[in-house]
Amino acid sequence: MAIDAMEMKLRPPEIQLKAYPPKLITLASGEKMVVREARREEVGALLGTIFPLIGVPTDFYDIVAVRMYAEILGWYRYRVANEFVIVGAIDGVIAGIVTSRHVSPKLGMSLHTLTIKRGLRVGAQLFAAKMEHHLDVLGEEEVYIVAESPNGFKRWMIEYQLEDRSALYPDVRHELGGVPTFVLTRPLWEAVRDIKCTGSRPISDADLKTADKLIMPSEYSQLPGFKR
C-alpha cells in the first residue's frame, strides 16, 4: 500500500480526453493509411518501431526518436499528463507516429512527429491529424509547436505560417527545452485546414480492421539494410 500511495503521488492528474475519430487517407501511392489513436496495449509495437531510429543522426531522427520514445514510455507508465498518441498504419504496418499533450481547455502542446515511411507526406498528414484533434475535437484555441529539424521547421513553421512567439519567452514557452515557440492559433488553422487536413470518415470496419493489430516495420529508408 505504501508503494501504491507513493505511486499515486508520482502520477500526474489525468482527465478523460475525447477520443480521436479514426479516418482513412489514400496516399499518393494509392496505399490506404488508417489514422487512429494508439492504444495503451500497443506501446510495445510503438517503442519497437521507434527504437532503431535512435541511432540515426540525419534530419535529427535521433533526437526526435529518443524524445518520442520517452514520451510514449512516460504515457504508458503514467508520467505525462493528458498525452495522446496518433498512429498512421498501412496494412497495419506503422508508417508514422505523432505525440501531443492536452494542457488546458485552451492550450495544446505538440510534442513530436516521426515519419517512418518517407516521400508520401505521411508526417504531414499525421501532424495535421494531431492539430485536428487539438483544435476540432478537444476544442483548444491554440497549440504550441517547436521543431528540432530543418525539415520540421519547413513543414510546420513555414507551411502553416505559424505565429512566432519566441520573443515572449519565458512567458510563452514550449515544454521542450526552451527552444523558440511557435503557435498554431484557431484562425491560422481555419485558414489551412482544407488544404492540410484530409481523410474519410466514417471509416469502414474492414478498413479499420487492417490496422487493428499494429505491425512494426521491417524496413526503414533511414536505415539501409536494417533487419529486425
Binding site: 487517407i25 489514400t26 496516399l27 499518393a28 501511392s29 494509392g30 507526406r121 498528414q125 495535421a128 482544407d194 488544404i195 492540410k196 487536413c197 484530409t198 481523410g199 474519410s200
Partner: peptide, 12 residues
Amino acid sequence: EAIADGPEANVV
C-alpha cells in the same frame, strides 16, 4: 486514383 480522382486528392 490517389492524386487526381480520389476524395483526398486535394490535400494529398
